[in-house]
């Protein structure tokens, strides 16, 4: 399936959970927030949230800023 991750197209094998995606890309869950189709996914739900064709996923973290 194809999703959109942080503005870019991404091919994923099915089935894929949020947790799976995070560990595949090496994200540290405590440092990020995940939004799927504009809805924030609570950290406890990462393992049970399945991604689907066409999902728009944003993974964000903090950086320096004033």
């Amino acid at each position: 399936m194809t999703i959109r991750l942080n503005g870019k197209k991404r091919e994923l094998e099915e089935p894929m959970t949020v947790s799976g995606l995070l560990s595949a890309d090496g994200y540290r869950p405590e440092l990020i927030a995940v939004e799927v189709n504009l809805a924030i996914i609570p950290k406890k739900d990462y393992g049970s949230t399945l991604l689907a064709e066409g999902d728009v996923v944003e993974i964000v973290s903090f950086m320096g800023g004033g």
Binding site: G26, I32, S61, F62, G65
Partner: peptide
Amino acid sequence: VTMALRRANEGGLANIL
């Protein structure tokens, strides 16, 4: 301390926190 939110870098890179 203030900080900003941006799209995350893929794993392994240093994080401000």
